[in-house]
Amino acid sequence: MKLGFFLREAVRAVRRSAAPSFAALATVLVTMLVLGVFIPIVQATDGAADTVRGRVEVDVYMQTSAGAADEVRVRRELLAVPHVHSVQFVSKQQAYAQQSKADPQAYELLGANPLPDTFHVIPDNPANVLAVRNALTPSGHTIDPAVQSVSDRRDDTRKILEVTNLVTITAAALTVLLTIASILLIANTIRLSLYSRRREVEVMKLVGASDWFIRWPFVIEGVVVGAAGALLAIAVLGVTKVALLDPLANNWTLIAAPRTIPFTALIVVLLVAGVAVSALGSGLSLRRFLRV
C-alpha cells in the first residue's frame, strides 16, 4: 500500500516534469554508456599487458642475413651466460608458419617473410630476467654481431601500460565529469519537482506526514529516472554487443579480449551505479530545499 502510493506519486511527478526528467535521464544514459564501454576496454588492455608481462623470457633476434653457423655459435654463447636455464630456437620459417596461422589475412598481404630467426632465452628464475638481458647486451652492444636486438618484453609491457594508463585516465576523467553532471541534473529535476509540489508538501506537513514519508516519493522519483537511464544504456550496450561485437569476436581473436567483465556483471554494475547516482542527486536537493 505504502510502496504503491510512493510509486504512483513518483510516476505522477515524472510525467508532470517531463523535460527536466528527460534531460537527467539522457545524462545518466550517456554516463552509463561511457562506463559500460570503458570498463571492458580498460580490462582488455590491462589483461593484454598482464599476459605479456607474464612471459618471462628474453628474446634474441638474429640479423636477417645470419646463417646456420651463426646460429650454432650464438646458441653456445647464450648458454654460457650465467642464470640462463634453457634456450629455444625458432627459425624464420617456423615463426612464419606460426604467425600466419594466427592471422592468415595479414600475412597474405605481406607476401615475403619479414620475421627473423629468434632465440627464446628462459632464465633459471623469473627475477633474473634483467640480469640475463644485461649480460646479453654489455655496454649497449649485443654480444654477437649476428644478433640484431635483444628484448625482454619489458619494452612491450611498458608500451601497453602507457596505452592502458591513457585509456584508464581518460575513462576515469570522463566518468567523473559525467557522474557530476548526472548528479546535478537529477538534483535539478528533484528541485523542480519539489517546487511544483510545494502544496502537497505543505499539506503533508500540515496533516502530520512523517519526514521520510514526505521524502520517499522524491527519492523514488530520482531513482526511477536514474534507473531508466541505466536500463536504456544497458539496452544499447546489449544490442551493440549482440549485433556488432559478438560476430566480430568470432572472426578476430584480437577483439575477443582476454578476461573482460561478463555482461551480466556489467548490467549489475551499471544499474547499481545509476541508482546510486540518482539517489545522491535526490538527496542533495532534499537536503537543501526540503525543510521538514
Binding site: 502544496r199 505543505e202 496533516v207
Partner: peptide, 24 residues
C-alpha cells in the same frame, strides 16, 4: 483552503489519511 488542485474532493480528503499511513 490549501487543497490540491489536480485531485478530486475524495482524493484530497483521502490524501490526509494516505500520507499518515492509513490503510486502504
Amino acid at each position: 483552503f490549501k487543497l490540491l488542485p489536480s485531485r478530486t474532493v475524495y482524493d484530497n480528503v483521502a490524501y490526509a489519511l494516505q500520507v499518515t499511513g492509513g490503510s486502504r
